[in-house]
Nucleic acid binder design. Sequence first.
RNA 1: GCGGCCGUAGCUCAGUUGGUUAGAGCGCCAGAUUGUGAUUCUGGAUGUCGCCGGUUCAAUUCCGGUCGGCCGCCCCA
Length: 413
Amino acid sequence: MSKLQPVRGTHDLLPDEYRRFAHVVGAARDVARLYGYREMATPIFEFTELFARGIGETTDVVSKEMYTFKDRGDESLTLRPEYTAGICRAFIFNGELTQQLPLKVFAAGPMFRYERPQKGRQRQFHQIDIEVLGAPEPGADIEVISVAADILDRLGILERCVLKINSLGDPECRAVYRKVLVDYYSRHLDKLSEDSRSRLQRNPLRILDSKDESDKAINVGAPSFADHLNQVSRDFFAAVQDGLTAAGIAFELDPTLVRGLDYYTHTAFEFVTTHIGAQGTVLGGGRYDGLIAELGGPPTAGIGWAGGIERLMMLCNEPAAEPRPVVIAPLGAAAEAKALGIARALRRQGIAVEQDYRGNMKRRLQRANKINARAAIIIGDDELAKGVAQLKDFDSGEQREVALDALASALKG
RNA sequence: GCGGCCGUAGCUCAGUUGGUUAGAGCGCCAGAUUGUGAUUCUGGAUGUCGCCGGUUCAAUUCCGGUCGGCCGCCCCA
């Protein structure tokens, strides 16, 4: 038993659950397509260097959560912990992608992070992802958030989520603010929690969001980022907010919203919910104008987000039931052989038909009922001789005789 | 990485103040005569009581470890 257990933080997606998984991805894919985003995929592992440089050496994700290993050629590889770096790498590497900007892509797939699992947090988890490269305008921020809102809406969960946005400014004013903040906290070092003291150099903006009571008290007097945004950043953030309002997308300003990946600039946003436990961020992202240059590409603006498929699954209601199949139930060797051809002809017309491999009439109808079939086509020697079948409707229980060549229209009507 | 709770049939759970064959509901399987489901009735099987070790005459029950899940922190999707 213990040997057959999946690795901690991973799990099997059984058919019922996979159906909901596919429902989430399908909805996202459909909406993304409506906005002109094209789907693509990048490898599940990359050179470790890509993530170390892209995400930031000091971030939690890079410093303690990556699945990194050496392959047989002694290369250091890492299972991707997020999608953005890989897509930016592909953008830089594949010149054709740089020819028509902005590039708008949709992607989905597994991500890997060595974290302590709990509800909504696995070591292998799955994300849907949207990126726009080569668009420095606030219109891209607005659009990308709009795609997200529409996906959540299509899944029926938008009203259970709140959109929080913040501006992290450009590198210039962020550096200034960071310094001001570090100075402020340094003056209150003795009252800071242990967590926050370690955050002070690594990611001081995080302290603003601390849940520690003592930290909260200090935060009351902390300098605010809004006061330190330069004019460019201020204008940009205002344009994003105006656009969201114009698009009819509700949002809340959250000055404590700080994303943990180094590459973010300007807009940061999250759709959060209180319905699925502590891991309430269902989708989040932001702008990363410096990332592509940092990775060695041509200076190119970027913005995007990732959504946690498992978290979205927890929140959304059951997808529409699948179409009910028809079961073909032959009796005897001759009918069984004939049924194979009949079933195939019906499937070619788009009718879902299932045929058991064994069993008498009772067993076949029992199984038909179990798989929620809508009808059964019953064929024995008598029917074979007359070129007909008994068509039994499971909901009404009624059964009637139908000519074999009229089966398709009878089942469609 | 830190703190806490939990682990009994496929599922949801009860139970043993340590003591013969560990239970229920749902589900599953088989029957209620010849080629007809679901409903009803009758019968049946569920299981190393997560795993390893310790204490004990005796452990599923107590203790330790381990694996896994969950809750909070951290972090994030």
